[in-house]
Nucleic acid binder design. Structure first.
Length: 287
DNA sequence: ACGATTATTGCGTTCTT
DNA sequence: AAGAAAACAATAATCGT
């Protein structure tokens, strides 16, 4: 067989690949491996009323005007002073007209920040756009007043990741956002409450691929850790525990089982927990 | 405000080289 | 024998309810 259609490992980090919407993304690093947005029927635009009469270029959620903007360039410089002044005036007025209201301005700012965060986290487009949807809903529900836009931008990204089973910790998001972890939480809580986000508890297995590849562990160890995880789940041992810590503990146990050299300290570090926590789930596994 | 989980710190023990 | 890693314990901080 010539070129295989679906290789199942990420070319960057060997993480597992998953199809999400039009994209094939790496669960570990979020790299978009393949994109295919040709002829997939009507564009996916949730929560957007019935305005589906437009046609044209693919729309993106992450610009307030969904990419349908026109700019007046400053290309030719072979103009007389009078025409240059005219053009300059036109350009200024045009740019003003693009942003009709104050609230739109906030949207623009929020979307810009979301783009920036999503870029820093190498998130797939679909997740980024989902974050924009969430942000816009939050503003429509008037959740923003008295709270920071940056916090909501970060929280939107965090929420979108969780909804895509792509969870990042609030610390990870806050690290690249212009908001700290507290701001993120202060924004996320009302969003989760008022918007009724479909986010169940975070499954520790969502962290296995990323941790595993950061530690360069063989795939068989990650697979074994996944098995240990379902054991824990079935015996009800992971209620209320930090999912990162549980994932780290399973990786450690799997490595030790295979006599693969991996210290508690190292897994604990990539999982952003302490060795004590790793040990906690490790001994749970020794039933 | 409460109970459970986790972090932190310190220290005697076990494993590796 | 020396140094690192894992285990243990007590207290403080944090989180979910």
């Amino acid at each position: 067989m010539g070129e295989s259609i679906a290789s199942s490992e990420c070319p960057e980090c060997d993480g597992r690949l998953r199809v999400e919407g039009d994209e094939t993304v790496c669960e570990a690093c979020g790299l978009v491996v393949a994109e295919d947005r040709l002829d997939r029927g009507p564009e996916w635009r949730p929560l957007d009323g019935d305005r589906r009469e437009r046609t044209g270029a693919p729309l993106t959620r992450s610009r307030h005007d969904r990419g349908l903007s026109t700019e007046i360039g400053r290309g030719g410089r072979r103009l007389t002073g009078r025409k240059r002044r005219l053009l300059r005036r036109l350009r200024r007025q045009h740019n003003r007209a693009r942003i009709p209201t104050k609230s739109k301005r906030n949207l623009v700012y929020g979307f810009t920040e979301i783009r920036r965060i999503a870029e820093a986290l190498s998130l797939p487009e679909s997740t980024r756009d989902q974050a924009c949807v969430i942000f816009e809903r939050a503003q429509d529900e008037d959740l923003l007043r008295g709270r920071s836009i940056e916090g909501f931008a970060a929280a939107s990204v965090y929420a979108a990741c969780r909804m895509a089973s792509f969870s990042r910790t609030v610390e990870e998001v806050a690290a690249v956002a212009r908001a700290d972890a507290d701001e993120l939480r202060v924004a996320y809580d009302p969003m989760n409450r008022e918007l009724g986000l479909p986010t169940g508890p975070v499954d520790p297995s969502e962290f296995l691929p990323r941790f595993s590849s950061e530690l360069n562990l063989p795939v068989r160890i990650e697979a074994r850790a996944r098995e240990l995880l379902v054991d824990l789940r079935e015996s009800g041992h992971l209620a209320g525990r930090n999912p990162c810590g549980v994932a780290a503990g399973c990786l450690y146990a799997a490595a030790r089982e295979a006599n693969y050299p991996l210290t508690q300290k190292r897994v604990a570090k990539v999982a952003d927990v302490t060795p004590v926590t790793v040990r906690g789930t490790y001994r749970e596994l020794a039933e």
